Computed example of a mutant assay.
Amino acid sequence: MTSDTTQRSASFQLILDTTEQLVKEKGCRQTTLQDIIDRTGLSKGAIYHYVSGKDELFGLILKSKAEQMNERFQAAVAGTVGPDAVPPIQTITQGMIANTDKNDVGSKIFIYLLSQNENPKIAEMLTDLYNFSLRMATSWLEVGQKAGAIPPDIDANRAAAIFMTFTYGIRVQNVIAGDMHQALQADEVFRVIFRSLL
Rank of each mutant, 00 (worst) to 15 (best):
D4Q: 15
D4H: 15
D4A: 15
D4E: 15
T5R: 08
T6S: 06
T18C: 03
T19A: 08
E20T: 08
V23I: 08
K24G: 12
C28E: 09
Q30T: 02
Q34G: 10
L42C: 02
Y48L: 09
Y50S: 11
V51I: 02
K54E: 13
F58S: 13
E67V: 02
E67S: 15
M69I: 12
F73E: 03
A75M: 06
P83W: 03
I89G: 02
Q90W: 00
Q94L: 11
G95L: 01
G95Y: 01
M96K: 07
I97V: 10
N99G: 07
N99F: 04
N99E: 10
N103V: 12
N103M: 08
F110V: 12
Y112T: 04
L114A: 07
S115L: 09
L126N: 09
Y130W: 03
M136D: 09
A137Q: 00
V143T: 04
Q145C: 08
K146L: 11
K146P: 01
A149H: 13
P152K: 10
D153Q: 14
N157S: 14
R158Q: 10
I162K: 02
T165P: 01
Y168A: 14
Y168H: 14
G169A: 15
R171A: 13
G178P: 04
L184P: 11
F190Y: 05
F190C: 00
R191F: 09
R191S: 14
